[in-house]
């Protein structure tokens, strides 16, 4: 076998694409005995490794994600997709009048249908069980409001909060952003299924609270204490912000860097969306 052919086989070996077990063994022996093949093996292996580990990875801009979802979401454009030639149709006056009646009938139908069918984005209804992070966040916020859960550290310094998380066993990287008109109050580290999780709280001058529970995406549904419905997880993974309102609180979920963050607040929905969804 020619040396060049052997070198190509070394590449396939590095990529785990050498399927023939015998030639794999033979190749290993050749790599060990031939310095040129050994150098080839090292170069291929190293270049693959450095590309995989050190190549920069940028998330899709939120604006692009939102634009795409807006254009394909059935809630946004059911009518246009059902009737792609509607513009041409309505440009003819004789058809326009009957067209308008038809549109009204269809819209009425869609409205009725919308209320009778399950809301596509009503992910809150899918979340259940004490280990679900959406449920945990709501319960924790309820406990904070009623004075049953107090911060373990009181500080308005984000650096101190992050150090507190690290020192108390939170293994993932945490985000403690500073937000205009909101002051950090303190933080809590909770434990579940042998893992530690980060929580922190903000307040504003009106006494409203924002509570943030962040869990590394890696833990979701892998750790028993951090469950979330796959449907909602996929929705967040796609860069969406999910917001729901219940019991006078706003709950917002968003993937921020590599964490899934659940935010609960008794402030207005608009304000919470502006704080967390616009970033």
């Amino acid at each position: 076998m020619e040396l060049n052919d052997l070198k190509y086989r070394v590449t396939a070996f590095v990529d785990g694409e050498l399927t023939n077990e015998i030639s794999k063994l033979e190749l290993l022996q050749l790599i060990e005995s031939n310095p040129e093949l050994q150098a080839e093996f090292e170069l291929q292996r190293f270049t693959k490794l450095i590309t995989k580990n050190k190549c920069t990875f940028k998330p899709t801009p939120d604006s692009v994600k939102r634009r795409i979802i807006k254009q394909i979401s059935p809630e946004e454009n059911s009518f246009l997709r059902l009737f792609p030639n509607s513009k041409k149709f309505l440009s003819k006056p004789a058809l326009a009048v009957s067209g308008v009646f038809a549109i009204i009938a269809i819209l009425l139908f869609l409205i009725i249908n919308k209320y009778s069918e399950k809301n596509d984005f009503n992910f809150a209804a899918e979340q259940n069980g004490p280990n679900n992070i959406f449920i945990q966040a709501s319960t924790n916020f309820d406990n904070i409001i009623h004075g049953k859960l107090a911060p373990q550290i009181l500080t308005d310094n984000p650096g101190n909060i992050k150090s507190f998380f690290e020192q108390n066993g939170v293994k993932y990287s945490t985000l403690v952003p500073q937000m205009e008109n909101w002051k950090i109050i303190g933080a809590v580290v909770s434990e579940g299924a042998g893992e530690k999780f980060a929580h922190h709280v903000y307040s504003n001058k009106d006494g409203k609270l924002v509570y943030v529970f962040q869990v590394a995406k890696f833990y979701i549904n892998k750790c028993q204490a951090a469950k979330l419905s796959n449907h909602l997880l996929n929705y967040l993974e796609a860069g969406n912000c999910y917001v729901s309102e219940a019991k006078g609180y706003v709950t917002l979920m968003k993937k921020m860097e590599s964490n899934i963050c659940t935010v609960v607040s008794n402030s207005s929905r608009n304000e919470i969306e502006n704080l967390f969804c616009s970033k």
């Binding site: 994600k65 795409i68 929705y235 796609a238």
Partner: peptide, 15 residues
Amino acid sequence: YKEFEREALPHMDAL
């Protein structure tokens, strides 16, 4: 749409 959301949207960053 739901299936597309589940299957295709998670690959957006890679694309």
